[in-house]
């Protein structure tokens, strides 16, 4: 287990979802292959991982209400930075007015990019290297011929302001764990648009990483599956979360609040972390939350949060509002948006 020298708390969180949605049944290759009532988000033509991250971070900072002082790092988990060789955090630092002595990096580990940014920020705060750190995650759907295959692939951003656990934090980080191994489950060669998958073998990497990470965490914390009010497990497709839950001994009702896949699809870099935002939007003081993420290639992060009384004082529900504030596009509109072209009919 990764241990911190000082207690760490979440001071604020926020998410951003673009307003466009497509029902998966309207994607031609999806016929019969996916639950018909699922939907996912897609960026507007003027949005990307940077603009979405900015909105999420602003919301998190607004909730934290701590101003901009003391921010020592802004780390963004992403697989779709519109730039290569220029971190999202550099633009964000200008946009937030915090350019200067801060660490800024993109963290890229597919589905656990955002949780990895979260744990790194926890490490910076926990070690005393930073009094406050922003962990963000933001992804747009990378356009490519294989995109039809990534049927659940979605768009959105989330952000968390981490600081020393004190009166103002809304949840304490009880402990965290991680597990990495070399796997060829799903991958693409650099420069190639083709995403490859090793079929049934791929599933093994996920099961091994997630169970190893979660079991280590529970062992270290001396907790059992029944001790958690909310559990968020990797949800890159409808089967993975329920399969993992069964294997780890979690019940469907523990998973309910954090399961965003049906309404939102899978925002790769922050898979799971958006589930955490959904849970924090409704969580009550003293509830315990388990988050476990999975990144291809492969690795898993897990951590446990204990919700504090201060959460009741914050204005919440923004994520759930955004989930319902939406407009549908058809497949033609979806294709236009993937190409960054307007869908306006005016």
């Amino acid at each position: 287990m990764l241990r911190a020298n000082v207690p760490i708390g979440i001071e604020g969180f926020g998410a951003y979802l673009p307003k466009h949605r497509i029902r998966l049944r309207d994607l031609p290759l999806a016929q019969g292959a996916v639950p018909q009532d699922f939907e996912k988000a897609i960026c507007g033509p003027d949005e990307d991982a940077i603009t979405m991250a900015k909105e999420a971070v602003e919301r998190a900072l607004r909730m934290a209400g701590v101003g901009k002082a003391g921010i020592g790092a802004i780390l963004c988990g992403t697989t779709s930075n519109p730039y290569s060789g220029k971190p999202i955090g550099s633009v964000l630092s200008k946009a937030l007015g915090i350019e200067g002595p801060i660490l800024a990096a993109d963290i890229n580990f597919s589905g656990k990019s955002c949780s990895e940014a979260f744990l790194l920020c926890a490490g910076l705060v926990g070690s005393g290297m930073a009094s406050r750190a922003i962990a963000a995650g933001s992804d747009s759907i990378p356009w490519g011929p294989w995109n039809e295959g990534a049927i659940y692939s979605s768009c959105g951003a989330a952000a968390f302001v981490l600081g020393r656990d004190g009166g103002s934090s809304i949840a304490s980080l009880e402990g965290s764990s991680t597990w990495v191994m070399d796997a060829l489950d799903t991958w693409a060669l650099r420069g190639s648009a083709q995403r490859r998958n090793s079929g049934r073998f791929a599933e093994r990497a996920m099961v091994q990483c997630v169970t190893s990470s979660v079991e280590a965490l529970l062992r270290e914390l001396g907790l059992g599956p029944g001790d958690f009010d909310h559990v968020i497990l990797p949800q890159s497709d409808p089967r993975s979360a329920s399969g993992l839950a069964k294997r780890l001994g979690f019940k469907p009702e523990q998973m309910e609040a954090g399961l965003v896949l049906p309404k939102l699809g899978n925002v790769e870099a922050l898979s799971g972390m958006l589930g955490l935002v959904a849970v924090l939007d409704v969580a009550k003081p003293s509830e315990r939350i388990l988050v476990a993420t999975f990144g291809n290639g492969a690795g898993s992060d897990s951590f446990s949060l204990l919700v504090k009384d201060a959460i009741e004082e914050r204005e919440r529900g923004d994520f759930l509002n955004q989930l319902s504030r939406k407009g549908y596009v058809d497949y033609a509109g979806y294709s236009r948006l993937l190409l960054g072209v307007s869908v306006s009919r005016a």
Binding site: G44, E47, D48, T51, K54, E55, A95
Partner: peptide, 9 residues
């Protein structure tokens, strides 16, 4: 009523 956002120009 409108609100400002940062977007790609």
């Amino acid at each position: 009523k409108v609100e400002a956002v940062m977007r790609r120009i």
